[in-house]
Computed example of a mutant assay.
Amino acid sequence: MAVFVCAGCGVVLTAPVAQVALPVHARQRYGHALLPALMEPGTYAIDPEPSGPPWRPWSEIGADEAAARGVFAPVHSLSFGAPGAIVVAPGDIRGTVLIPERCDGYCMGLDGRDGPNLACAQCGRAVATRIDDCTYWQAVWLDPDAVRRVPADDPARRTVDWEALAGERQGTPPVEASGVWSPRWEAAVGAALAHLLAASAGMPVAVPDGLVADTFARALEALLPPGPPAKTVALAGPGLSAPDPAASIALVPRHPQTGKAWRPSGTVDSVPLAADVWLHLAFHQDQLTVPVTGGMPDGVLRDDPLPLRPRELFRPDSRVFLDTLARLPAVDQPWLRRIYEHVKDAPYARPF
C-alpha cells in the first residue's frame, strides 16, 4: 500500500492505495451520460505512456520517431508530456482544492482541457486533474512530476493468484439494466479484437457459439475475408478444462492486478482479454427459476426477473480498437494496415 504526497510540501494527497493494472477502458469515451469511477476505491494505476500537452501532430513526428515510441500506424497526434500519470478514484483524493480558472468542460463537468485543475491545499502547487464530465470515466490523474509515492502503514494487499481469481467466478455483466451493452465490454472486446486480428494472419476465424460469437463474430466477419475458417478460437484459462487441441488461438484473461496475461500451454497464439469480461464468458450461466416440484423445461428462461437482453447488436469500441492496433507491430503488414485505415476513416461503420 502507498500514499501519494505533494512533491512541494509533502502533504498527503491520497488515501492508502494499492497498485493494479491500468484498466483497458481508461481512455475510453462513451456516450453523453455521466459514467462511474474508473478505479475501484483503494486502488491506483500508472499510465506508462506520456499524457497531456504538448501534443505533436503525426506530420511532425514521422514513422520512425513514432515507432520508437511504440506507435506503428498513423495517429492524429501524440502526447509529449510526462509519462507515468497516476490515476485514482475521486473519493481517494485528500488535501486538494480546485483551481477555478482551469475548471472548463464540455457539458456536465470537468474534462481537463486546461491542464491540472487540482492544487495542493497547503502550498498551492498544481498536482492533479479531476475528470468528471460526460463521456469520461470519473477519475483523478495525479501529475507524476508533482507528487511522490511513499509507503503507507496499511498492510500490503495480496496479489490474487489465478486459481483464486477463477474461483470467484465473478465478472462484469455484458448488458446493463437499461438494455445497452456495457461500455466496459465494448472497450475490452475492442482491445482484444485488435490482438485477435493480428493472430488471425488475415485468414477467416471461427469463434465459439454463444456470447463469444455475439461479441466477436460480427466484427471478424466484417474485417476478415470470407471463406471456411482457417483458424479457431477457444477460451482458455484457470478453472477451465484444456481447450480443443484443434484451436489455434486462445482467448485468455489479463490479470486485473498485474496486467499480465494467463499463458496457455503449447504454441497456440494467445489473445488477452480483461479479466472481468473473460470471467463472465468462461463461467456465466443463466440462472433458471426452479418450480416447487419438477424441473424447468429445456429452453425455458426464468421470468422473475427476466434475464437482461441487449436492445441492439454488439459493437466493439472503435477508438480502443484503433488505439490498440496502432501499438501492435503487426499493423505494418499491408493487410492489417488496410483494416486499420478503413476503420480509421469510418469508425462508426459496421461492425462498429
Rank of each mutant, 00 (worst) to 15 (best):
G115L: 02
R94E: 07
D276C: 02
D104T: 10
L279V: 06
G239V: 01
P307T: 08
Q285I: 12
P305W: 08
D47P: 00
A236T: 08
P16W: 05
T324P: 00
A282N: 00
R149N: 01
D303Y: 03
T324V: 11
G112A: 08
P226R: 15
A166D: 04
D145L: 11
D303G: 03
A222K: 02
R350P: 07
P238D: 02
A139N: 07
P53I: 08
R94C: 01
G105Q: 14
S178M: 15
L301M: 13
S318C: 07
L279D: 07
S270V: 15
P226W: 15
G52V: 02
P48S: 04
P347R: 14
P151H: 08
A66M: 08
R157N: 08
L325I: 07
P329N: 13
V71L: 03
V140K: 06
R315E: 06
R254M: 09
D298K: 13
D209N: 03
A45P: 00
L197R: 09
Q19Y: 05
S178I: 15
P226V: 15
E176C: 01
V5K: 01
C107T: 04
P297Q: 06
M1Y: 13
T258D: 02
D209M: 01
A63L: 05
V290E: 12
A33P: 00
H25K: 10
Q333H: 14
G227Y: 01
A213Y: 11
I249Q: 01
